[in-house]
Design a protein around this nucleic acid. Sequence first.
RNA 1: GCGAAAGUGGCGGAAUUGGUAGACGCGCAGGUCUCAGAAGCCUGUGGUCAUUAGACCAUGGGGGUUCGAUUCCCCCCUUUCGCACCA
Length: 852
Amino acid sequence: MPYEPKLIEEKWQRAWADAKVAEVDVAAPGDKFYMLNMFPYPSGDLHVGHGRNYILGDALYRYLRMQGRAALNPMGWDAFGLPAENAAIKRGIHPRQWTLSNIEREKKQFLRWGILYDWSKELASCEPEYYRWNQWLFLKLYERGLAYRAKAPVNWCPSDQTVLANEQVIDGRCERCSTIVVQRDLEQWFLKITDYADRLDDGLDTLEHWPEKVKLMQRNWIGRSVGADVEFAVPSLAKSIRIFTTRPDTIYGATFMVLAPEHPDVATLIADNPDRAAIEQWIAGVRNQSNLERQEAGKEGRFTGKTATNPFTNEEIPIWLGNFVLMQYGTGAIMAVPGHDQRDFEFAKQYGLPIRIVVRPSSGDVPNAEEAFSAKDDSATAINSGIISGLTTPKAIERIIGEIERMGIGKKMVRYRLRDWLISRQRYWGTPIPMIYCETYCTSSGIVPVPEEQLPVELPLDVPFTGREGNPLAKDERFVNTTCPRCHGPARRETDTMDTFVDSSWYYARFISANDGTKIFDSALANRWLPVDQYIGGIEHAILHLLYARFICRTLHDMGLLNYEEPFTRLFNQGMITKEGYRDAEHGTWVAIADVERVDGKPVHKTTGRALIAETSKMSKSHFNVVPPDELIERFGADTERVYTLFIAPPEKEAEWSDDAVNGAHRFLGRVWNMGEQVQGRKQKAEGRSGELVRKTHQTIDAVTRRFDRFEFNTAISGLMELSNAIGDALNSGDADSGALRDSYTTLLQLLHPFAPHITEELWSMFGNEGLILTSSWPKADPALMIEDVVTIVVQVNGKLRGQVEVPNPPEKEVVLAAIRANTKVQQWISGKEVVKEVYVPGKLVNIVVKG
RNA sequence: GCGAAAGUGGCGGAAUUGGUAGACGCGCAGGUCUCAGAAGCCUGUGGUCAUUAGACCAUGGGGGUUCGAUUCCCCCCUUUCGCACCA
């Protein structure tokens, strides 16, 4: 019978589903292993690039099962978000309907791939059963002072009438309509992640099994800087301005001060300046610029007309305003040390401000006219710096901070680049923020939280989607108008919804109690099953999602709901799948494959004849380079796609999809299939000649197991190909008896099962085995059976390969050297020469060093 | 600009601690089966020279350490990714 995946794959998918093999009773005892693929946004069609993530997770899941672990592998849907709303506007489908039908489609795709999830714990963040706990979490954060409302400059799209997240701003424009994004001051809800900056930074050190790259990205994002706050007196106004610096040791070189144009003291400073009107106009111009425009404008500044006193040199230094100083970082004011900061240097050059050298690099080189010496050089020394002259940089910093604190003008300070998390979205398809504004102001702010027992604040479903006028929620009077829970007077509901990153910051815990309508999750169970032992997902979530999840996990810890601070013990980031696509050589627009033809071997557009260039990039609809799994599965089967996907490259690396190379994986499975019948048909004994096959089998068990543990799926599969080749050789040569062949072959099936689950279940049952191969035990390698009878010792002369000798295992030095003396080829290379040295690496090689 | 990772055949990629470079697969070539093709199956396949035996060269480039370097150290080049006026 030929290998026809179509005839067997559905059958086993049904068998696994009927047996509910992946369902886990979280209350039952067992050697738990919680693995999790990042839950996807249900966008509709999945392609083979998406498949990589889930296929490798499923391979791991099946391996763990066979190892006897109580493996939990749940799946859900990150179901709120912008595309659903856009679909509603464009095509008149309700976001909920659009989302649910996408979920249905994607779920079918998972089934077709043969992926096993515990669907009894399925969740979707757009359902009230889920988002009511999102709201509950928000209330708890509010109670603890971790959720607050404040006016803040935000990205505002004037066309879509909404706030945009930073990641929705592409090159200064709205990702949806390409309108230039402007900064606007709006009242928004924030979560106080900055309170946890230190703990989030410190926690990274405990994450041994996270990729260094991700930890580094998070560290940079948090941007912890140790320095000092220092007050500079402004004598003419009888006040002082506070600056933050990481290099207080250069304070003797501070020859001017620069404030952000938004700095609150600016108005006072320029109040009596004759050029006040012009300066104010300049400030207004800067404030109106987008961040992008502001940076592209280059460094610009204005003199306020006032001076501050450098507390160490006692000089009066001018106070400037500068577009390169950010109000959101530090105190919005800096002491400028143009001798040792490149930015200050450029500004000083531009406006003719004095530059003073106060640090000598350890190399002794004096700074040149082109740049400031700002490198981190721990052995540089302070010069022209009064009390700290002669001290190395670290010592000088310590000393000067001591002096600043003694003088009472400042103190050591740690600051972060990280900002508080803005979670308000003027969008419909998200979790309503459970807050009420009392119109009679029964509280001082008028803000009253929705009482817990009134949750969930449900998203009304029958709202019109017209597109251009902002959030439909704000227009729904039935939703907006309510009564104050405190004073029962008239009140209005908050109409902003939450950033969907809130939904995904705690879902991993909800899976444990997915169907519990009484609480967010059961703490005892969560503490047993969490943290997640293995988290799998894309590198694109290296910062935001993972940082938010680590933050929320800590707040849940502080509420006493969880007894650990890090949600994910091990993290794995799979690489992207890429494929060649075509774009117009001139305009760069992507062209559908159907419109490409080759003329003289060069790609051109079929109808316009324009020249095209081939370019390999991330698989995506807009690049017209997606490979849909359906056709592939129809032709080769899901097992082939799975094996190819994992064989293509190491899983963490980017990999280019090749339609040709898929054949190789299919051929391999075809050979395994055909061998099954041959192995079964083989009856005779070939006595005592099975050693080699047995050895290869146990070596393969050992190698594949080790490679699995290290996520080296590509080499695990190549090892299985080697074993299958060895079985094929044994069949052809008749060198192994039927028992050894059977053992070796069924071992191959078990080792192959995590990669190719359907074909291996089929062959396993064909061999008359009881039960599923999935629930069989992972083979164990017997080290005694792995040992070779004979080992090959490599002989080098002066480090060059000159021959090899075979000796019985374990090799003895005397025997090896005797064999080498008997080897004429090797002797030719050393005869007549003086042997200086013989290096013997036991069991591996001999290197003979000769002279002359 | 700062930071990180990576450069190995025509291609994807292998190579425990420094110890036979190129496993496994794709592609290609030859053969076999077939009326023919497809699919199988078998053999070969880094480069140069040589009829062969074999020799030399070869892991981005250049140096170094070592009996021995894809692997360790220094310099340079290229590519990819992240951050980007964060004081």
